[in-house]
């Protein structure tokens, strides 16, 4: 879907981005991860030509983006900024309707779409005629997201979208982000310096340093097969938590059924097999369940397990990874 080839950007003698190449598949969520100054934001901004590269090529849907006018290109790409960049002189409704206005949609279509998005983002209609400065940070960020999604672009670029939010608000928005079906249809490139966020939201992570991609792979790849010591050290902190986030239920071998019998009155929840182990822990901790029914749609089977059984399967999987 998006193909980046030997992309470079030099500011004077500084090579901010140095001949990087990567690919993002359709509906995939790619994270550009790294410390500040590693070139991740510059890379992102070259994709919608906010920054013109010094060298290299970018294709979206096999079309060279440098052969289109920047305005046309940008109208087809959603963009979410860290500080939301909402227009302070526009109401919420007007802010969301900026791109439809540029694309000259008729009024009805715009209104319908704005209302639909507001509902999906759990904001009531009362907010339509409110100015951004009257909203909380989380609400502003949701409007920023709505504005980027309004014309249903195939590609969404997000520059540290949750960076300015407090932890509580951030995890709430993370949850909404993962649940929003509109986003599942998008190809997303997101910049962040937050490793936890990268592991939670990314299908695919490019870890960058000094303008180069150090490693490009799934969260599990980075965690269990680090390419070099830089990657290893980068992920060292909170490693266990990352492991919980990197490993998905359907990667585990099905645990052997223990001897414990199902007692009466036990609480059982259903869970999809393609979620991370982290969500499993959340179910046990916050919902107080005793057992989970794992529904594996891909293999068309269902199995159940309790906390101990799942933990032992998790450690078994980990062991295998390190022995490989």
């Amino acid at each position: 879907m998006i193909k980046v080839q030997k992309l470079s950007k030099h500011f004077g003698k500084v090579k901010a981005v140095d001949e990087i190449s990567f690919e993002v598949k359709e509906h995939e969520n790619l994270i550009l991860l790294g410390t500040s100054g590693c070139g991740k934001t510059t890379t992102l901004k070259m994709i919608n030509r906010l920054i013109e590269p010094s060298a290299g090529n970018i294709f979206i849907d096999s079309k060279n983006i440098f052969e289109q006018s920047p305005e046309t290109l940008r109208r087809g790409i959603g963009y979410v900024l860290q500080n939301n960049g909402l227009f302070p002189h526009y109401t919420v409704a007007e802010n969301i309707a900026i791109v439809p206005q540029l694309l000259k949609w008729d009024k009805k279509r715009t209104e319908k779409r704005v209302a639909e998005l507001l509902e999906k983002l759990h904001l009531t209609k009362d907010y339509l005629n409110v100015y951004p400065n009257e909203l909380s940070g989380g609400q502003q960020q949701r409007i920023g997201l709505a504005r980027a999604l309004v014309a249903d672009p195939a590609v969404l670029l997000m520059d540290e979208p949750f960076g300015a939010l407090d932890n509580v608000t951030r995890s709430k928005i993370h949850a909404e982000f993962k649940a929003l079906d509109e986003l599942k249809r998008k190809t997303i490139i997101m910049v962040t310096h937050d490793v936890q966020e990268a592991f939670e939201l990314g299908d695919h992570i490019c870890l960058m340093d000094q303008g180069k991609i150090i490693q490009d792979g799934t969260p599990a790849d980075l965690l269990f097969n680090p390419k070099n010591s830089f990657v290893k050290e980068f992920l060292q902190e909170q490693k266990l938590q990352l492991e919980f986030k990197a490993i998905k239920l359907n990667q585990l071998s099905r645990p052997l059924k223990g001897e414990a019998e199902k007692g009466v009155g036990q609480k059982v929840n259903n869970i999809s097999a393609d979620v991370s182990f982290w969500s499993v822990l959340e179910h046990f901790k916050f919902d107080g369940v005793d057992e989970l029914n794992v529904i594996d749609k891909e293999n068309n089977e269902t199995w159940s397990a309790n906390f101990e059984e799942l933990m032992s399967a998790f450690y078994q999987y980990k062991k295998q990874q390190f022995h490989e």
Binding site: L50, Y79, F87, R147
Partner: peptide, 8 residues
């Protein structure tokens, strides 16, 4: 930046 990025 937001204005530019939206294609104005």
């Amino acid at each position: 930046e937001a204005a530019t990025a939206m294609g104005m």
